[in-house]
């Protein structure tokens, strides 16, 4: 897991909405292969932070320095827009809470998975389809569903399809916003298990936002606890959950049934 440089170096990231604070002065490093959980209640700034990190939202202050494959560490907001968009389509993945935000509902499952390949220039139908089939299998979607429309899929399948669509381009960094948030509890377990396995097998670096501490415990190596836009505590996941130091974290942990 340890490499010479972090994959992501975040410094002083701040985003306001007028007078209101989205997130304030957030700094951290994310190392290759590391899963960072961001936890907190709704409105704590988790999603704003994730959007700034993943270049979906421009911060008011601060830097997000990403270790690009070819040019080393670069502030993503200093990159030209084409480069940044290319990065987002290839080296990064974004898994939205609601799969419909991350999928094309009007085209088949196979096309959804194959799109990123085509977007970076794949022009061989046979190979694109083979990749799509492979990835459907890896996210436990039956191969004979490849030509079906996503609207015929269950919620859990849609979320797995969204994951396959993101991972097909072999990203190094994946942002996840409440990946299990829209699913029934019984389906959550399966998805978590799948994510856990994929992250470990592929050596992905992940920033996952969740309000569910059980999800954080299963997926994240490290946690940041956010409150009112600021990080109040961070550390090893089980340490933060089992020996919380900050009053807010203690309240958060005490408020749930089985962390």
């Amino acid at each position: 897991m340890m490499a010479a440089t972090p994959l992501l170096q975040v410094r002083g990231l701040t985003r306001r909405y007028g007078a209101r604070i989205g997130c304030r002065d957030v700094s951290f490093d994310l190392w290759p292969g590391e899963v960072l959980g961001i936890v907190g209640e709704s409105g704590s700034g988790k999603t704003t932070l994730l959007k700034c990190l993943s270049a979906q939202l421009e911060p008011d202050a601060g830097q997000v320095v990403y270790a690009t494959r070819d040019e080393g560490p670069r502030d993503i907001f200093a990159l030209s827009e084409p480069r940044r968009r290319l990065l987002m389509r290839t080296d990064w993945g974004i898994v939205h809470q609601h799969p419909v935000e991350g999928l094309r509902m009007g085209v088949s499952a196979g096309a959804n998975v194959g799109e990123r390949l085509m977007a970076v220039g794949a022009r061989n139908y046979g190979r694109i389809r083979a990749s799509a089939l492979d990835w459907l299998g890896r996210v436990e979607i039956a191969r004979d569903r490849i030509d079906d429309m996503p609207r015929t899929f269950s919620g859990g399948m849609l979320q797995r399809l969204q994951i396959a669509r993101n991972l097909v381009s072999s990203p190094r960094l994946v942002f996840m916003d409440e990946p299990t948030g829209s699913l029934d509890v019984s389906v959550q377990a399966r998805l978590l298990d799948l994510l856990h396995g994929l992250v470990a097998d592929l050596g992905l670096s992940v920033v996952v936002v969740t309000h569910d501490l059980a999800v954080a415990r299963l997926l994240a190596h490290r946690l940041m606890v956010m409150r009112a836009g600021s990080v109040v505590e961070e550390g090893l996941t089980d340490q933060v959950l089992d020996d919380p130091q900050h009053a807010y974290t203690q309240l958060l942990v005490a408020s749930i049934l089985h962390p």
């Binding site: 399966r190 298990d193 415990r217 190596h221 550390g235 090893l236 340490q239």
Partner: peptide, 26 residues
């Protein structure tokens, strides 16, 4: 650092607790 502790746990430190905490389907 958290990274170092995880490395330690992976290679050096074993821990058998009283409770098993695993992912549901594995």
């Amino acid at each position: 650092t958290p990274q170092k502790i995880l490395e330690l746990r992976r290679h050096t430190l074993g821990y058998v607790s009283q409770f098993l905490r695993v992912i549901p389907r594995v």
